[in-house]
Design a protein around this nucleic acid. Structure first.
Lengths: 205, 205
DNA sequence: AGCTTTGTTAACCATTTGGTTAATTTATGT
DNA sequence: ACATAAATTAACCAAATGGTTAACAAAGCT
């Protein structure tokens, strides 16, 4: 095979470093020198591999935004019943965010500060098709009399709100509730089942 | 009477401009020149009135963070029943965020990028005492058999999640759901009652 | 081996940006 | 009216920052 580059190792170091710095500080707050330092390479290498700051950022943003709605498409196609689908999505989503706490705030924050970025990236690639499937599943559950009538969009919004928001607002929540890191983690662990049951409780007939 | 300054009008222009720019771009993304331009004053005036960027930012941040949990203390002391308190808080909170869409994302985002800022500001001033009152109200409602047992913190988190998150994630939601500005506003208007009923539905016995 | 391409570095450059200064204008008190 | 203090401006400055260059080292190819 023979890779064209020594090993594309440098590129990975850059991406890892850039990911850390961008996720933590955002586009405007990130410093190219910081990324270079963290990657333990010369700053010029950043431009050698990724032209400029904006393009490096775009690479990270695309990669990151892509993680935001993982394998939910397949999950919606599974033969789980509606409630178990909700349980499964909630649980795996909170797990994912636990593993990548900066992810939602990063994507949302940068999309707000740079509105065109979302369209430029989300649309060209994988537009979350799972929303349509989820909507259909909700409508079907309503029609079959399983759950109360509700606008599917609200249900979807409620679900993601309760999954993602606590991680974004973590510093604030810690202050206003007075809890510490450890207890915060316990709460988030509980939410993997609690949020789903909270939702189901609210919509089940 | 006799104000010491021409009218402290300039100071207000600066604060208005700074508020706009900081809320939209964040501390790192804001430019002093942009603030000066928007305030229609000379850049030096920013430093004349507010020493430096960090202090100007801190002024705005304090003011903004202070709006985040408004009059809920008093509301908790009112003679409304528990469910009506929830309805009232949800409704007025969503209304407030509708009027200040950037507010939650700004505070949360800056607290994440600059962790010490929260402690420096939240604690010294008004620590939200309403959380304690809300907790007590929840516990009382559980004990009196009005609602199902639930950790008060989760309930509080769920409530604010569903109120604030949609506004923060607006650009993303618009893309993944395919809705436009107008329909988004309709949805948010609906949520003023929908979110409260969703919560009540879930916890009522 | 010898030539070419790819990878890497240190030094440098131009622009942006937060901040300052000194001079000027505007208001205020007496 | 006059002296004093507050407000405002244009020009300037130094540091930070994104980006470039030119020389050099390492791989790959024939």
């Amino acid at each position: 095979m023979s890779k064209s580059k020594k090993d594309n190792n440098t590129e990975q170091q850059i991406l890892n470093a850039a990911r850390q710095v961008f996720l933590e500080k955002g586009l405007a707050g990130a410093r190219m020198q910081d990324i270079a330092d963290k990657a333990e390479i010369n700053k010029a290498m950043l431009h050698y591999y990724f032209k400029n700051k904006d393009l490096l950022f775009e690479t990270i943003f695309k990669e990151t935004a892509g993680k935001l709605f993982p394998h939910f498409d397949k999950l919606m196609d599974s033969d789980l019943n509606f409630f178990d689908k909700i349980r499964s999505i909630v649980s795996s989503y909170i797990e994912m965010v636990s593993q990548n706490p900066y992810l939602p705030l990063f994507v949302i924050s940068e999309m707000n500060k740079n509105p065109e970025i979302g369209l430029k990236n989300f649309f060209e690639k994988q537009r979350p098709g799972f929303v349509k499937k989820f909507k259909e599943a909700i409508e079907e559950s309503i029609n079959s009399g399983l759950i109360l009538s509700i606008n599917p969009l609200h249900l979807i919004i409620n679900m993601f709100s309760m999954c993602a928001f606590p991680f974004m607002a973590k510093p604030m929540l810690k202050i206003i509730t007075g809890i510490e890191e450890e207890q915060f983690n316990i709460l988030m662990e509980q939410r993997k089942v609690l949020v789903a049951e909270f939702i189901i409780n609210s919509i089940k007939k």
